[in-house]
Design a protein around this nucleic acid. Structure first.
Lengths: 163, 163
DNA sequence: CACAATGAGGATCCATCGGTAATCTAACAA
DNA sequence: TTGTTAGATTACCGATGGATCCTCATTGTG
């Protein structure tokens, strides 16, 4: 019922390897080799992300994939919505089709507050935040592919969530 | 990756129809008819809940299902754990098998805090809380089956969750 | 004991998700 | 134009979750 599928994890890992808009395209194959994500599956995933406007893909010589927006403007929520959709945010916890704001089920308010808290957190983390976190693997990858190093800081921004 | 499957919703709806330990057993078929949950599927679900020690089922004449613990001592977390298990609580958001407390991924702390917040909320709601919420449907069901009315208050206890 | 009531359990079906492989097609270079 | 290098597309496989049907096993009643 809740999202954040394995594929969303793939998307996160893959997009960490990409350049900001205008930068050098990276091959799907390179990303697959480095991350361990199956190539064919990653190819479809990239295509999906392209359709959602999160990345730009070009075929042929010097083709590859680039971020379609600055990393600082791509949140975990964007990824989740692109891949898992938003249907789960409207589903009744009890599975009642008639449950809504006007005719709420016993747990309607409780559940909506829970979902809101989750979404706030997902919205608080961007790709840029992830890049700021020290990660030898990704840094080596970027170096190997002649990509810019986005930053040097540590740790994802600490967040406080209230119901 | 996250739990709270459709089946967990079924379990919630079904267990709301049951009596406290020592009370009258209710037929699986009655619960199925009232809730709309498919009988055969509910039968298996009840069996699973029985194995997990949440309900007691007896076959034959005057058989049926009863809660194995007081409704006030059965939380949403209990239901979730019984049906969806706890594996999702230990999975890395990025899907990295090597991610753990000692070798955390970029989002390890963020994700653990998110899960903790969710669990706190799930732990804060009991079957008894749900019963206190006014619900004509369930009340009619209980009356039809000669079951006690657990309370008369309204609304699930308001919860505050902090990261 | 025989029968009826009632949960337990097996076989099977269908949709979705993760995954694989082969082929098609756009982009560029020589 | 021809060939090579990419991503795009299609078909298909296997595992899992939800669901159905039919039969088995247990429990109480007369």
């Amino acid at each position: 019922m809740l999202p954040l599928s394995q594929t969303t994890g793939y998307a996160l890992r893959a997009m960490r390897c990409l350049q900001e808009p205008g930068g050098h395209p990276v091959l799907v194959e390179s990303v697959a080799d480095y991350t361990g994500i199956p190539r064919s599956y990653l190819s479809k995933l990239v295509h999906k992300l392209a359709k959602k406007g999160l990345v730009t893909a070009r075929r042929g010589h010097h083709g590859g994939v680039v971020l379609a927006r600055p990393a600082a403007e791509i949140t975990l929520e964007d990824l989740s919505n692109a891949i898992d959709g938003v249907a789960w945010q409207n589903r009744c916890l009890l599975g009642l089709s008639g449950c809504s704001g006007e005719t709420p089920c016993v747990l309607h308010t409780f559940w909506q507050e829970t979902l809101a808290a989750i979404l706030i957190r997902l919205r608080s983390v961007t790709l840029a935040d992830m890049a700021r976190h020290h990660d030898p693997g990704v840094e080596r990858f970027r170096a190997d592919h002649g990509l810019s190093d986005p930053a040097g800081q540590r740790h994802v921004q600490k967040q406080v969530v209230r119901a």
